[in-house]
């Protein structure tokens, strides 16, 4: 077990996270109990989860099954159950990432050279989808800044652009022009270098599954989920603000910043509340998804209604 200092973003502490093995035991126990009592067997897991979550003040980590079966990853289909169904034939290894733009060390890097095991940390974050649902996910990954600094960005590097792999033969969603493929995203340099921003390679202590963005994805916990681009093959340092796919699709609904903000509604729904997966009642959405202390200073003086 590794010991580390409690970091400011750890309001969900490692101790609260159920270890994966214990979690599996618990599932087996529930399944066993369900087998013993027919009435219990009729209660589906999701309802059991909702019941367990009510009345508990602290935030529970979202069950592994839910994290890996309820995904927005249009490359594998537009239903949230599609990625888990259709991502099986995707090959996340071997994997390379092209680094380009304003930096001293551009080039094509093997995943193993980019993400060194010694740099990998545990980070349990809230994930707030722009569709007003949320999860709590125990990620493993490397702070993006650690990797970016190694590439020695130059003074012209004001933004970082990301690109998802384009493989229509393995990603059935890409065979239809649902979105302009490949999916692209971007961050301002200070956002990319923020302590919270993570390049994730795993969750629940296991390699990312294909439906979660294997083998390498962004996690920006104070922004809506669509900023956390999956299956990254290219990282570029740019001088201009890069395009991001949803903003290109519907600019009046999705901006570049996409900071979680309960006061700025989506044109088609309120962002004031969210449904935590596993819970019945909606809960209040927190400004910057509860990470204001770490990130609010980056947006001081900005009109967040205009820069949504």
């Amino acid at each position: 077990m590794h010991i580390r200092r409690k970091k400011p973003w750890d309001d969900v502490t490692a101790a609260e996270v159920t270890p994966y093995e214990t979690y599996l035991d618990r599932r087996r126990f529930i399944q066993g109990a369900a087998g013993a009592a027919a009435a219990v067997a009729l209660v589906p897991d999701s309802v059991a989860g909702a019941l367990a979550a009510t009345g508990i003040g602290q935030e529970e980590v979202t069950p592994y099954e839910d994290v890996t079966s309820y995904n927005n990853f249009y490359e594998f289909g537009t239903d949230k159950s599609d990625p888990a169904k259709n991502a099986g034939s995707f090959t996340p290894r071997p994997w390379t990432v092209e680094v380009a733009g304003h930096c001293a060390k551009p080039g094509t890097y093997a995943l193993e050279d980019l993400v060194v095991p010694g740099d990998v940390e545990d980070r349990t974050y809230r994930l707030r989808c722009v569709e007003a649902w949320s999860m709590v996910i125990p990620w493993q990954g490397v702070p993006l800044g650690t990797i970016l600094r190694r590439m020695e960005p130059t003074g012209d590097a004001r933004f970082v652009a990301f690109e998802t792999v384009f493989r229509p033969e393995e990603m059935p969603g890409q065979r239809r022009p649902i979105l302009p493929w490949p999916y692209v995203e971007g961050l301002r340099m200070d956002e990319a270098m923020n302590d919270l921003t993570l390049l994730a390679t795993g969750l629940y202590g296991r390699d990312l599954l294909n439906q979660s963005g294997a083998p390498l994805r962004l996690v920006v916990p104070w922004k809506y989920g669509f900023k956390s681009i999956k299956s990254i093959v290219k990282i570029s340092f740019t001088a201009e603000m890069p395009a991001n796919t949803w903003n290109v699709m519907t600019p009046h609904e999705y901006g570049f910043y996409a900071n979680v903000n309960p006061e700025v509604d989506h044109p088609r729904w309120s962002q004031a509340r969210e449904r935590r997966i596993g819970e019945f009642r909606r809960r209040e959405t927190l400004m910057f998804n509860g990470y204001g202390e770490q990130v609010a200073h980056m947006y001081a003086g900005m009109d967040l209604t205009r820069y949504y």
């Binding site: 009729l42 589906p44 897991d45 999701s46 309802v47 099954e65 839910d66 079966s69 309820y70 949230k80 159950s81 649902w133 449904r275 997966i277 596993g278 019945f280």
Partner: peptide, 12 residues
């Protein structure tokens, strides 16, 4: 009752 319990977000 007998299948996937309508998934991770049964209300949706």
């Amino acid at each position: 009752f007998l299948g996937d319990g309508l998934g991770a977000n049964p209300i949706e």
